[in-house]
């Protein structure tokens, strides 16, 4: 047994990086998978957008009329 042990000798590196200290680094926020939307939600959002568009256009028309009248 002692002979086998002597075959392996301890190796200590004399140069290069000997140890790594764990330094706290700043963390980034993680990449975000976007949640898919259900068909209903997509349609509802589309309805909402369309309604907003119509109102916007109506307001535009109204304001242009107000400008021309006086």
């Amino acid at each position: 047994m002692p002979e086998v042990k002597s075959m392996f000798r301890e190796v200590l590196p004399k140069q290069g990086q000997l140890c790594v200290e764990d330094v706290p680094t700043m963390v980034m926020c993680k990449p975000k998978l976007l949640p898919l939307k259900s068909v209903t939600l997509t349609k509802l959002e589309k309805m909402q957008r369309d309604a907003q568009e119509t109102i916007k256009q109506q307001e535009m028309v109204q304001s242009s009329q107000d400008e021309t009248q006086p």
């Binding site: 975000k32 949640p35 259900s38 209903t40």
Partner: peptide, 15 residues
Amino acid sequence: PVTQSGRPLTGFVRP
């Protein structure tokens, strides 16, 4: 990533 209530971001949004 988490949502503001501290839950993990889900894969799907419902109404």
